[in-house]
Design a protein around this nucleic acid. Structure first.
Lengths: 219, 219
DNA sequence: GACATCTCTGGAGCGGCGTTCCAATCTTAG
DNA sequence: CTAAGATTGGAACGCCGCTCCAGAGATGTC
């Protein structure tokens, strides 16, 4: 049989995959669950998609694509970097499973898009050309690293765990660490309780940008 | 039966797990493969280890622990940060599966150790106390993000793929991207072919450190 | 020394996974 | 109308994490 009212397409499969991943995390994407949601069998899905890895990559691509579509058009290159970074940060926060995919399949199709968005701003910052690759890479690495770290917490929290309670628990754990081995960590335990993820992420972006403009002052 | 010549211990299990992970990557760690290597059954392993997640966490802990044991004792706080960062970078490069674990199980037992090592140097840099948490977090996020990115490549390369050939392929792919949508990426394709991972990682650390000392000049 | 008890072992088995295979069906071309 | 091709979906395979449990050392008690 074939051709139901709504034909099975790669796009519909990827959409359903994203929904499953959002709803139940990395482990929620199953060819059986996907089959059921699309009212078909696994075999039909495999006709449109090579395997699970390709499906995950396509789902990741879809999310990143959506996060990068709106052009920055910001006042300064710095603001443009902040805009791109925040867009990705929020997208990964909303779809935490993306983090794992992005660090797993580097240099693939998705990364160049991110790299390009950041790189254009690096160029606009007046960084000398021979440093373009390095500087753009560093910024992308920080963005993805920080977002991944944040996504890990989001994954632990889940959709219905109290964030404050969670931070309180971690903070208390830190305060009970060995005073000698963990002197620093104990001292900042209360800062960790009260920190804001987005603010801290932006502070990191600014730190890197300051490093860039200090090391390569615009002529 | 029990008590063979070499008793089954948690430590022996974790060691074997690390070996399996190193040899065959994330997917290489299987309770069946582990059973065979340890000449026992899955049940015996489960008496010492709660589940696969705990085993992965323990394996990650073992690797990170080994990477952080040698005290920095460097000339400057900057050098100490570089030493800690490089230690982690190399450890993750050698055990690429660690990257996924570290970004997956944030704020757990392993992260505070890294955080503490970095944080002490942040303190030594003269950063004002109210910024300690933020600055230390940013540095740790960059280290783990960059190392994860690098590990992804190491995973693709595997133990016996030519690095230069791989970079050449990626570089060529970049050069063939759409000239309009990927103007920047195309321009730096050749830089990407010739870059050195470790050097670039250190350049990133220096960029962040410059940002830190510029934003918070030591009194 | 005998026995009960506790610690530890390892193999069998359960449900679920990714993936493959293929008969059956629908669409299209001549 | 019919043959060829495109598409479907369910059955089945081998592997996975994990649980269960009979029973083999080790240990303690008298």
């Amino acid at each position: 049989m074939a051709r139901r009212s709504e034909a099975l397409t790669r796009a519909r499969i990827v959409d359903a995959a994203v929904e499953l991943l959002d709803a139940a995390g990395e482990g929620g994407l199953t060819f059986r669950a996907l089959s059921q949601r699309l009212a078909t069998g696994p075999g039909a899905i495999y006709w449109h998609v090579a395997n699970k890895d390709e499906l995950l990559a396509a789902a990741t691509d879809a999310v990143v694509d959506a996060a990068l579509t709106d052009e920055p058009s910001a006042a300064s290159p710095q603001d443009a970097v902040r805009a791109v970074a925040l867009g990705l940060f929020d997208a990964i926060d909303e779809h935490p499973w993306v983090a794992g995919q992005l660090s797993a399949s580097s240099w693939q199709a998705t990364t160049p898009r991110i790299f390009e968005s950041v790189g254009r701003q690096v160029r606009a910052l007046g960084v000398p050309q021979r440093e373009w690759f390095t500087v753009a890479s560093v910024i992308v690495q920080y963005i993805l690293g920080a977002a991944a770290q944040n996504a890990a917490n989001a994954r632990i929290l889940g959709p219905d765990v109290d964030r404050e309670a969670f931070l309180g628990t971690v903070s208390t754990t830190w305060e009970e660490l060995d005073p000698e081995d963990y002197a620093f960590t104990r001292t900042v335990a209360d800062q960790m309780r009260e920190h804001d993820d987005r603010e801290q992420f932006l502070a990191g972006i600014d730190l890197v940008l300051t490093g860039v403009t200090t090391t390569h002052p615009p002529r």
